[in-house]
Nucleic acid binder design. Structure first.
Lengths: 286, 286
DNA sequence: CTGAAAGCGCTAACAG
DNA sequence: CTGTTAGCGCTTTCAG
């Protein structure tokens, strides 16, 4: 061993992987709609990939990145047959996909964002964060609060809705929700909509920072001041949020990604669900 | 072939790599100072890693990510001996490192940001962009322009300085430069400094968006209005820039990263330098 | 407990 | 041009 070290011996990764029957890559697989293999730029995903690459490197594993269309069974089959892939980290998977993939990659798949009985889950504790943010608004004495939530059928959306509904109901307040896409445009649309339906709204809980900024834009355009007339919270704590003074919640994305990689390499055994706490970041808007 | 396809045969990557003597990974190696192996979060690097991973995947290659301290010869030796690494993409390398690494990985290394006779270079055409931004200010009738440049000894900094100096000199104007780190704090410091030395400054060319925003903050604090009193340009076109209305220049980071990966996998032959044009994005601040 | 040998699944070079 | 075979560098099993 000492000799090997002094001679500068470096083991041949492929050779050992081949002999030991291990894979040499971790695949990060963001799930996309039917037939879509294009990957939209996404800083969140970038952080996951970077973290996975960094962690993988220490174990001789490289990361691959490929969009996984929602129902491409051929691709799923090929994935399962590829013995060179040590593990697959699904991002934004739907339950439907989880069912299709788990038996093809038994013990070699983990999911960020939505889990199942067969596929372990690692994610932000959206429930706790949404509850904390909503509670923060109520504590500030605000009563007419609206949740601008994300697309339905996405699991973090439903956890967020549930948390919001719980906190509002417990306070004896009405549960008002506007679902829109996770975009600035979505936020603007939501702002318009909620002003029309509930003109006396005092606070908005948005499901992401882009949406929150869109909401603020719409509110401002209609003469509402933020936070004086309406308080607004975002979610994700993008660099933009700090600049805009947006109250938000920050996620330990790197920890989550690292946990996902470790979990998928650890084989079976280990927790079926791992939730990571986010931290509210109070700024000017709420 | 058809049969293999119908049976869903998937080749074993490690096995073919081993037999063919190919590597199975591309290493992205951001260069860090002496002994520093920690990697600071960097959206730019994240985009490089993501692009490399996506492109690598199509060729059965995974990406690894590791900080490469400026003068760790043992690590460099180990890298050279690692036959499992198909190529190394250096990021922010210094000339000194390039000399040390090229002979250890002949034909298997490419650099983003600084090249040499042995190591091909792929980068943003900083010279052209800085010249274009400076020219834009001069065309707007501004005369007393200051360049807030990055740390000295970084190659993109020197290209930017050169371009700025050329354009200013040609217009018969003084070349005024303040070098600071690529950070918001650096920008604030630069703002203070340039207000002290040249209080009648009409425009500032900053070397990155964070710096530009820092400059604007300092200027505003001292009662200068942007762009009415002082015009400011950034560089990189971060999401922040669009939100802040900052005039900037946008880089094809994905194209650059893809070119770097292709170049390093293409072996010897191919251009020694590849420059990518950036596009000025004119917004409110200049 | 140490040392030899048989593969892991593929490629490339060779003979037919 | 098709069919066979000897490795690629390691791990693991099995005999000594």
């Amino acid at each position: 061993m000492r000799a090997a070290d002094q001679l500068g011996y470096v083991a041949h990764g492929s050779a050992s992987a081949l002999a030991a029957g291990r894979g040499t890559h971790v695949l990060i697989a963001p799930v996309t709609p039917h037939g879509v293999t294009r990957l939209d730029p996404c800083p969140y995903l970038d952080r996951v990939v970077r973290t996975a690459a960094q962690l993988g490197t220490t174990q001789g594993l490289g990361v691959m990145l490929r969009a996984l269309p929602l129902d491409d069974d051929r691709m799923l089959d090929a994935l399962g047959r590829d013995r060179d892939i040590a593990g697959v980290v699904l991002v934004n998977a739907h339950t439907r996909l989880l069912e299709r993939i788990s038996h093809r990659l038994p013990g070699r798949v983990v999911s960020i964002g939505a889990g199942s009985a067969d596929v372990p889950l690692v994610d932000v504790d959206t429930h706790a964060s949404a509850a904390a943010l909503t509670a923060h608004l109520l504590e500030a004495g605000l009563r007419r609060v609206v949740l601008v939530s994300g697309p339905t059928r996405i699991s973090c959306t439903s956890r967020q809705r549930l948390a919001f509904a719980e906190v509002m109901t417990e306070a004896g307040l009405p549960v008002r929700i506007v679902p829109v896409p996770f975009t600035g445009a979505g936020g603007r649309a939501a702002g318009e909509a909620l002003l029309r339906r509930w003109p006396t709204t005092e606070a908005v809980v948005a499901s992401c920072d882009e949406t929150a900024l869109g909401v603020i834009e719409a509110l401002t355009r209609h003469g509402r001041r933020v936070p004086d007339d309406v308080a607004v919270t975002g979610f994700d704590d993008l660099p933009l949020a700090a600049y805009a003074g947006l109250t938000s919640a920050t996620h330990p994305v790197e920890e989550i990604a690292a946990a996902a990689v470790r979990r998928v390499l650890g084989g079976t055994g280990g927790p079926l669900e791992q939730w990571f706490a986010t931290e509210p970041v109070l700024r000017r808007t709420a």
